[in-house]
Design a protein around this nucleic acid. Structure first.
Length: 463
RNA sequence: GGCCCGUUGGUCUAGGGGUUAGGACACCGGCCUCUCACGCCGGCGACACGGGUUCGAAUCCCGUACGGGCUGCCA
């Protein structure tokens, strides 16, 4: 039987990094085994489910390149199926109606905890067959009373729980809607899921689900419970995939980071999508939880900025710049700028912030830098510089290079004498790519214009 | 409270009876240099603790501590 896995988020929030990693591991597992990756939206919580979250989850999958192989399944479309299955269980005696009131259960819970029987309060109606007409009822499943259940987890190893820990949990609420632990089983079985790969927070639920499989007569799938990511719930980590995209992370960086958080293949850090598909396996997944570290995410992203084809990266950066309201053309100049800026920022966002002077008509110059570098003593060199640059036949890097170096030679100075003043004049600050390429990429009109502005500043300080 | 799971530098991790405990991020120092980056070189820094088992334990077993999860008519 070929591998079929699914990622099953609830649409009660955006897709955050933890969910994205679970989805990724499922996706990689499917691709590695040449199987299917499915997406199921768990939208049975009518209070909190929202369509905008569904859209965002789908959008995130598309952006990350993890599109499902079949139509997305919505649990809300399948209510009849769950009810039908629940009826079957009542019929077969594996489930029963419970007419207890909340108060009765609460009281029994206290007694149960006190007496050491931890689940007795869930079995109040297990052996009764009266059917009071004036009370609502839920449907509970009959949990095994003795023995134990064991799951052979592909990540966590063998885990066993005694029957006394197992409760007769609710499978149908009093309003007739099914609960999570029931839907999951019905859906996974109905969708022919072979491997359930999900967060470790569901490890204990697995035992409950095991007896649902049994009652329904289904063969349980294989399980792999991924360690949780800590440090995510704070301000930073609960951010959505989209927010990282807006910061300028690229999918290769995010995917690589996520893959390495909880999974390893020896000492290797950088993995392409194809390598991940080829090498990924549950045996490489760590059992212990990890912590989100934005510094490392940035490093991965920076590595991938440097690895992508310049044309490809320029195209993505152009899209990003447009979203940030920069008017840029996707032309050779942008490719050139991309080529030099890709090593100067760890995200598209940083690349943008470090290079905005290439895209703006007007720049603001840092006052301290002006004070320090646009000084009267370089007036003469500066004037001459503008003259010789203006006389250039071709505005290209090589010619700008020789022209400026000649000028420095003639004045018996090193490049250092003029580099920073020119930078401040043309970019507004003291850090930029190489001087000559910066001038070249700025374009003659902008460069000369800003140099003249710089000259004015110097002149105003000579008086 | 009960049950389940986890614990290698600040962080991600390799290693699973005998290793100078390896790599990566971050950090620090140096080199490169027209600035800032990139790159390169070097450095700091870890087997949670206590008992066993063994000639020998980071590695196997037990306990403790700490962290996390579950214990809902949330998912």
């Amino acid at each position: 039987m070929s591998v079929r896995v699914r990622f099953a988020p609830s649409n009660t929030g955006y897709l955050h990094l933890g969910g994205a990693r679970t989805a990724l591991f499922n996706y990689l597992f499917a691709r590695h085994h040449d199987g299917d990756f499915l997406l199921r939206v768990e939208d049975t919580d009518q209070e909190r489910s929202q369509e905008k979250y569904t859209d965002a989850i789908l959008d995130a999958h598309e952006w990350l390149g993890m599109e499902p192989d079949e139509d997305v399944v919505f649990q809300s479309d399948r209510m009849d199926l769950y009810r039908e299955k629940a009826e079957d269980l009542i019929e077969s005696g594996d489930a029963y109606r419970d007419y207890s009131t909340e108060e009765e259960i609460e009281e029994a819970r206290k007694e149960a905890f006190a007496s050491g029987d931890k689940t007795a309060h869930t079995r109040l109606w297990r052996d009764r067959d009266d059917e009071p007409e004036d009370r609502d009822s839920v449907v509970r499943i009959k949990a095994p009373l003795e023995g134990s259940l064991t799951v052979e987890d592909h990540v966590q190893g063998e885990v066993t729980v005694d029957a006394e820990e197992l409760d007769d949990f609710v499978i149908l609420r009093s309003d007739g809607t099914p609960t999570y632990n029931f839907c999951v089983v019905v859906d996974d079985a109905d969708m022919d899921i072979t491997h359930v790969i999900r967060g470790k927070d569901h490890l204990n639920n697995t035992f409950r689900q095991l007896y649902v499989y049994d009652a329904l007569g289904y063969e349980p799938p294989e399980f792999g419970h991924l360690p949780l990511i800590s440090g995510l719930s704070k301000r930073k980590g609960s951010r959505s995939v989209q927010e990282y995209r807006e910061d300028g992370y690229i999918r290769e960086g995010l995917v690589n980071y996520l893959a390495r958080l909880g999974w390893a293949h020896g000492d290797q850090e950088l993995f392409s999508r194809d390598e991940l598909v080829e090498l990924f396996g549950l045996d490489g997944v760590n059992a212990s939880s990890g912590e989100f570290d934005e510094d490392k995410l940035q490093w991965f992203n920076a590595e991938w900025l440097k690895k992508l084809e310049a044309d490809e990266l320029a195209e993505r950066w152009a899209t990003y710049l447009h979203k940030r309201d920069f008017e840029v053309e996707l032309d050779e100049r942008l490719v050139d700028i991309t080529e030099v800026m890709r090593a100067r920022g760890q995200t598209l966002g940083e690349m943008t912030e470090e290079s905005d002077y290439f895209f703006k008509d007007e720049i603001e110059r840092n006052e301290d830098d002006v004070e320090e570098w646009l000084t009267p003593d370089i007036l003469e060199m500066f004037e001459e510089l503008i003259e010789v640059l203006a006389d250039l036949d071709d505005w290209d890097r090589g010619d700008i290079d020789t022209t400026i170096r000649d000028l420095c030679d003639r004045h018996g100075e090193g490049l250092g004498a003029i580099a920073q003043p020119v930078r401040v004049a043309t970019t507004g600050g003291t850090s930029s790519p190489g001087l000559f390429e910066t001038l070249a990429m700025l374009g003659r009109p902008r460069a000369l214009n800003r140099l003249n502005e710089g000259l004015e500043i110097i002149r105003s300080r000579t008086e």
